[in-house]
């Protein structure tokens, strides 16, 4: 039956040698990743709309006068810029891996992870500042919605950092050349998605003025 199996092999999802002989021409992993990202749009959509609903709803009896009072736009702009630039280092990493330039690939991915950590650091700093101004998670509807939304995003970034570090350090023995291109690409897709979510959050939550 060897010939029969050979026939079967031709439509196999993956094997060691070839790649992505699928109906769509897209590998299973990549298609699954995009499906997940597509699904995640609905997740962030729900969080953002929950926030929008409570955006001006601050009747909590405290001194809190509204987000304008606590947002530090120059600071958030800087961290937004950092996240945006981490997308650049991510594509440069992928580009390097595609060139089979393993060393540059690793460096760029570590850069990306570092920029991500800076962003998370900024977020922790921001949360601490807010908390210092008396805005706890349970203070009012605005704070609950705000911390949940930005917290979910922060967790997504953190997961991305773990993926980046996992890829860089998990391939120490096996190498991270061209053959790992798809892995890097998938991590990159996730990373860029997290970035564009922040593009939306930054505009809709921070920049669009209220009143």
């Amino acid at each position: 039956m060897a010939s029969a199996t050979a026939v079967v092999d031709e439509h196999a999802g993956h094997d060691d040698h070839g790649h992505a002989e699928t109906n769509t021409g897209i590998s299973n992993n990549k298609l699954a990743m995009w499906l997940f990202l597509s699904s995640d749009c609905l997740l962030f959509g729900a969080l953002i709309s929950s926030f929008l609903l409570y955006r001006t709803n601050i009747s909590d009896g405290t001194e809190f006068e509204g987000p304008g009072e606590v947002f530090d736009i120059p600071f958030t702009s800087l961290s937004s810029f950092i996240l945006l630039m981490s997308s650049l280092t991510m594509v440069l990493a992928l580009s390097a891996v595609n060139r089979d330039d393993e060393r540059s690939g690793r460096i760029w991915m570590l850069c990306t992870a570092f920029l991500g950590m800076l962003f998370i650091g900024g977020q922790v700093f921001e949360f601490t500042e807010f908390a210092g101004k008396g805005l706890g998670y349970t203070t009012n509807t605005w704070t609950s919605a705000f911390y949940t939304l930005t917290g979910f995003h922060g967790v997504h970034v953190s997961v991305g950092i773990l993926m980046l570090l996992g890829t860089v350090f998990g391939t120490r023995n096996s190498g991270m050349g061209k053959e790992k291109s798809e892995t890097v690409e998938l991590v990159g897709l996730y990373w860029h998605f997290v970035d564009i979510v922040w593009v939306i959050i930054f505009t809709v939550i921070y920049l669009i003025p209220i009143g």
């Binding site: 999802g13 993956h14 094997d15 998990g170 892995t183 996730y190």
Partner: peptide, 22 residues
């Protein structure tokens, strides 16, 4: 005789699996 749906490449799976479990 490779005929399986999952990827052979543990790293690729890492990304794939990780995403879904995110």
């Amino acid at each position: 005789h490779d005929d399986h749906g999952d990827s052979d490449d543990p790293e690729a799976v890492e990304a794939g699996a990780e995403d879904v479990d995110v």
